[in-house]
Amino acid sequence: MLRSNITVFMPSVLTLISIPGLESVQCWIGIPFCAMYLIAMIGNALLLLIIRSERSLHQPMYIFLAMLGATDIVLAASIMPKMLGVFWFHLPDIDFDCCLFQMWLIHTFQGVESGILLAMALDRYVAICYPLRHATIFTTQLVTQRGAIVTLRVAILVAPCLVLIKCRFQFYHTTVISHSYCEHMAIVKLAAENIRVNKIYGLFVAFTVAGFDLTLITLSYIQIFITVFNLPQKGQINTCIAYICVFLQFYLLAFFSFFTHRFGSHILPWIHILFSSFYLLVPPFLNPLIYGIKTDPILISMVKMC
């Protein structure tokens, strides 16, 4: 308690307190989190292996799935080992620079996942609405370039968040982060200085990335469903439903976490932190399950491999 009441000059170590209010049961909470983490890592690694080894899957749709799987692996690996260390081994301390690096990894690969979901939506839009032009538009070169652009876009936009924290803040109210991982606003709120610029830039990044992607994804799926329901055969509906499930669970949890951090002071902290943790872990956990079940070529290749 003494530690949290002293104004600290440039702390070298921060402390994560896992899920505020649930410290007494965090050992048990770690069990389902660990199970989801293992399934996410194994499932996405298997997805990558199947797409790499099966030559018939070397198409834009499945290359984007491989990118999504790789992103999910990095996202899960950047958060869960430390979180389980806090839950099970009482290792809450994290180096300040390591905390900033974890924050950069988390927000960068969240944005990368959003960009890949947009690329997948545009791929389905062209494949269903303009099938004769799909092969000429979505070439392997375009897919590779899209992946590089998505990664660079977010990495460059998120990097100033590190600079604004590192260069603007010298004094901190506390070194205790009321969170289970290093999140941008959770770190910014520790500062004993004006955080207005950081909050504004955080909003700018969120709406530049997620707002732009969400708008185009929504428009793409509206047009896809209009086209599919006008076709005599509606075989593409199952594939679209799989994509929409991934799209909804990612953005609903993302915006809940985002707005709760800024406007959800009336929400109990443990509810907010629990949902924020699920937000990062549920997409990597569900994506390989959804695509493995709903995408027939992947399911067939998985059966053949087994």
Rank of each mutant, 00 (worst) to 15 (best):
L2M: 13
S4K: 13
S4N: 15
I6L: 05
T7Q: 08
V8D: 08
V8E: 12
L14D: 04
T15L: 13
P20Y: 05
S24G: 12
C27Q: 09
W28A: 13
G30R: 03
I31E: 07
A35K: 03
A35Y: 10
A35N: 06
Y37V: 00
L46G: 05
L46P: 05
L49R: 15
R55T: 12
S56L: 10
H58D: 12
Q59V: 11
P60F: 08
P60N: 08
I63A: 08
F64Q: 04
A66V: 00
M67I: 02
G69M: 02
A70E: 01
I73N: 00
L75S: 02
S78V: 02
S78N: 05
S78F: 00
I79N: 04
I79W: 04
M80Y: 02
M83R: 07
L84Y: 00
H90E: 13
H90D: 14
L91I: 05
I94R: 12
D95M: 10
D95S: 14
D97Q: 14
C99W: 01
L100R: 12
L100H: 06
F101S: 07
Q102G: 01
Q102V: 02
M103L: 11
L105S: 11
I106S: 11
T108M: 02
T108L: 06
E113S: 13
S114T: 11
I116K: 03
I116T: 05
I116S: 02
L117T: 00
A119F: 04
A119N: 05
M120V: 11
A121Q: 02
L122S: 05
L122M: 08
R124H: 05
R124D: 06
Y125V: 04
Y125R: 10
V126Y: 09
R133E: 15
L142N: 06
V143I: 08
T144D: 12
R146L: 12
I149C: 03
V150W: 02
A155S: 09
L157V: 01
C161V: 11
L162H: 04
V163A: 14
R168N: 15
F171K: 14
T174H: 01
T174A: 07
T174P: 02
S178C: 10
C182T: 04
A186G: 09
L190N: 07
A191C: 00
A192D: 14
N194Y: 04
G202S: 09
V205H: 00
V205C: 06
A206M: 08
V209L: 12
V209R: 04
T215Y: 15
I217Y: 02
T218R: 02
Q223A: 10
I224H: 10
I226V: 14
L231E: 14
Q233L: 03
K234M: 11
A242E: 07
V246L: 13
F247L: 14
F250W: 09
L252A: 08
A254F: 15
F255H: 10
S257M: 07
S257T: 12
H261F: 15
R262G: 14
S265K: 06
S265G: 07
H266D: 15
H266Y: 14
I273S: 15
I273K: 13
I273E: 15
F278G: 13
P288Y: 03
P288H: 06
I293Y: 12
K294F: 14
P297N: 09
L299A: 15
K304V: 13
